[in-house]
Amino acid sequence: MSVKTNIPPATKTFDPARRSFLGSAVAAGIALAPGVFLYGIGTAKQVQARSLDEAASSSVRWGMLIDVNRCDSGCDECVTACNTENGLQGHGRPETDAQWIRKIELRDPASGRQNSLPVMCMHCEDAPCVDVCPTGASFKRPDGIVLVDKHTCIGCRYCISACPYKARSFVHEALHDQKTHAPRGKGTVESCTMCVHRIDDDRQPACVEACNSKGGGAMLFGDLNDPDSEISKRVATYATQQIRADLGLNPGVRYRGL
């Protein structure tokens, strides 16, 4: 039922000059706080600040690298940051409360060695949740981020069954005062968006930012398609793994030290 409308020129045009300020600031590498720098976004040369009117491009593939050795068992800054950023309120019902990122404690029964790591939506290249969604609400953006289009989601929860990483949650109650940058509603499915609203604004996902400023500095975010990015260089240098790599989904989140 789309109506082709010719939009008449606005009475006041928007000022694009505001945008360019942000772009140049990031390219220079701004300090967030004394001693704390924007971590891992790469060199000034490679940062192409995508303007607001530009579509996401498949020349970029956003990914994360998590160094399990730097992840502390007692720390959950990433989880707290995600909950705050996206407005995830607990309702005291752990079975049905949403969880976009969680800390998993691992223990090898043979050796007793223990590990801790955050697990969130893996943003797979060949995501099963995207395959099974009957309406196409679960989709992958050209730059690799897997999202749920809540406008089309009918809440069938098939994608939750299909996800091998248990990354998705269903909203079980009516929500109020959602964050303006993270719309979420009753009866739809949701999961980690890799803070797509921040990425589109040339910032880091909240979990990565929190880990690097308050946590163990275990998380790195960047463009896996850019060979000069910090993340690509590390993936090329060190041994990294994907969880359940055997499923052939090629997740965008990789781990080091698993």
């Binding site: 989880v79 752990p94 969880q99 969680r102 800390k103 998993i104 404690e105 691992l106 223990r107 090898d108 029964p109 697990v119 091998p164 990483y165 248990k166 969880i243 359940r244």
Partner: peptide
């Protein structure tokens, strides 16, 4: 998610 390992989470 982690074949062979014991896991625990929230």
């Amino acid at each position: 998610l982690f074949p062979g390992m014991e896991v625990r989470s929230t």
